[in-house]
Computed example of a mutant assay.
Amino acid sequence: MREDPDLKSKAAIRRSVRARRGAMPQAVREDATAQLTARLIALTEALGARSVAAYSAVPSEPDTGPFLEWALTQGIDVILPMSLADSRLDWVRYTGVDSLAAGRHGITEPVGPRLGGDAAAGVDLMLVPACAVDEAGTRLGWGMGYYDRCLAQLPASIPVYAVVFDDDRFATLPHDPHDVAITGAVSPGSVTRVLSVTD
Results as ranks from 00 to 15, higher is better:
Y146G: 05
S60L: 13
A130L: 15
G112L: 09
H105N: 07
T172Y: 09
S56H: 09
L36Q: 03
E135C: 08
R149P: 03
P113G: 15
F170G: 01
A32L: 07
P81G: 12
R50C: 03
R104W: 10
L43W: 06
A53N: 04
C131E: 10
A54S: 14
M144R: 10
G96V: 01
E69N: 09
V128D: 08
Y146V: 01
T64W: 08
E61P: 03
L72M: 12
L43F: 11
F170P: 00
R114L: 12
R88V: 15
I76G: 02
H175D: 09
Y55R: 04
G137H: 01
I41L: 01
L125H: 00
T108G: 13
V97C: 08
R39E: 14
V58T: 14
V97P: 09
A119Q: 04
Q35R: 15
T172L: 12
L36W: 14
Y147W: 10
V28S: 11
T44R: 12
V111I: 14
A121K: 13
Y55N: 07
E61M: 11
A156T: 01
V133F: 15
V164Y: 00
V52D: 03
W91M: 05
A46T: 10
H105M: 11
I76F: 12
G65T: 09
R149Q: 01
A71N: 01
L80E: 02
A32S: 13
T37Q: 14
V52N: 00
A46I: 11
E109M: 10
E61I: 07
G145M: 02
T95D: 08
Y161T: 00
Q74F: 10
W142N: 06
R114S: 13
T44P: 07
G103Y: 11
V164N: 02
D90C: 07
Q74N: 06
S157V: 03
A34H: 15
R50W: 10
L84Y: 08
R39G: 07
S157R: 13
V92F: 05
A130P: 15
D63F: 15
P81D: 06
R169G: 02
A71G: 00
E135Y: 05
A54L: 07
G103A: 07
V163G: 03
V160A: 00
L40P: 04
Q35M: 14
G112N: 03
